[in-house]
């Protein structure tokens, strides 16, 4: 069973937010969705879930048009955060509603998790703290036993201990129920420990899909240069993440053999390749914007 997103385009108030977005979500996968603020992550989630009607494109599930086949809709769970209908009801009432809307709703698991995390069953969700609301949204999502769960910033506002528990919940859900989870997050360090692959939303479309271990083109180096000034080619071909005196940490978006030869040259006293993370890939993908900002900052200084 695969959820296929095909050429989705969406304009909101005459502004193109999504353009020809295409990707697939396979069973039992955890996929990250990253992009800059306002890139269209929430719009994409809303469009997949059926809140928004796409201007163009199709969402397919089991060879059927997901948006037009309403009987498939209990196969996918999504609530937009932070404002959603859940806040106006108690967990007790929400259970009654979701039992009607999701035929596989796991009542006993839901009750057990509510109890485990000490959430008040009779109080309205809006009286909960921000972290507790996020936690409740995750419990509800998984209790639905929907095959596909879309989570928008699920770890936002959670303390470290609860975050670990939630991450465990996510992993258990996938291993025990073969659920597919699409997570939108700005917390790339957390994503690295969870996801199988990451979709990067840039320029209104999925710019690239990457898995850290598969990435051969993006490389991260720490190096020390010999001259007074940073060699020009570094700025032109990479994104400088940190610089202390002559020591520079840099990410190359499109590492080539030529670059490797240059780095081995006399301009550098010391060169070391570092472990790459999603954050580095993200930075490298937005190298141009980062470079422009860097220049503006330098000009201001």
């Amino acid at each position: 069973m695969t959820l296929v997103i095909e050429n989705i385009s969406k304009k909101i108030q005459d502004k193109q937010v999504l353009e020809n977005v295409s990707f697939e979500l396979n069973q039992g996968e955890i996929v990250g969705l990253v992009g800059r603020n306002g890139a269209g992550k929430t719009t994409l989630f809303g469009t997949i879930a059926g809140e928004l009607i796409p201007d163009f494109g199709r969402i397919g599930l089991n060879d059927l048009d997901y948006n037009k086949t309403t009987r498939l809709h209990d196969q996918l769970f999504y609530v937009d955060m932070p404002e959603n209908w859940l806040r106006h009801y108690s967990p007790k009432k929400i259970k009654t509603i979701l039992k009607v809307s999701y035929k596989n709703f796991d009542e006993s698991w839901y009750d057990a998790e509510i109890k485990r995390f000490g959430l008040n069953n009779s109080k309205r969700i809006r009286t909960y703290s921000k972290g507790m609301r996020a936690l409740f949204a995750i419990i509800v999502s998984f209790a639905s036993r929907a095959q596909y769960v879309l989570l928008d910033e699920p770890l936002d506002g959670l303390d470290v201990l609860i975050r670990d528990q939630v991450k465990q919940l996510i992993v258990n859900q996938v291993t025990q129920h073969n659920t597919t989870i699409l997570i939108a997050s700005h917390n790339l360090i957390e994503l690295d420990t969870l996801v199988d692959r990451i979709l990067l939303l840039k320029n209104q479309t999925i710019d690239r899909t990457f898995a850290i271990e598969d990435n051969k083109d993006i490389k991260k180096y720490q190096l020390a240069f010999t001259g007074d000034e940073l060699p020009r080619f570094l700025r032109d071909s990479g994104t400088i993440i940190a610089q202390t005196g002559h020591i520079v940490t840099i990410v190359f978006n499109d590492f080539s053999e030529d670059l490797g030869i240059k780095l081995a040259g006399p301009e550098f006293k010391f060169v070391e390749e570092l472990q790459i993370s999603s954050e580095d890939v993200f930075r490298a993908s937005f190298a141009e914007e980062a470079f422009t900002w860097q220049q503006e900052l330098e000009a201001d200084a």
Binding site: A49, G50, E51, T70, R71, L72, H73, D74, L76, Y78, V79, D80, E83, N84, W85, H88, S101
Partner: peptide, 14 residues
């Protein structure tokens, strides 16, 4: 105003 509409659009009803 409670965004119930928004969620109902995602449900197995048209």
């Amino acid at each position: 105003s409670r965004r119930l509409d928004t969620w109902l659009y995602t449900q197995n009803i048209s």
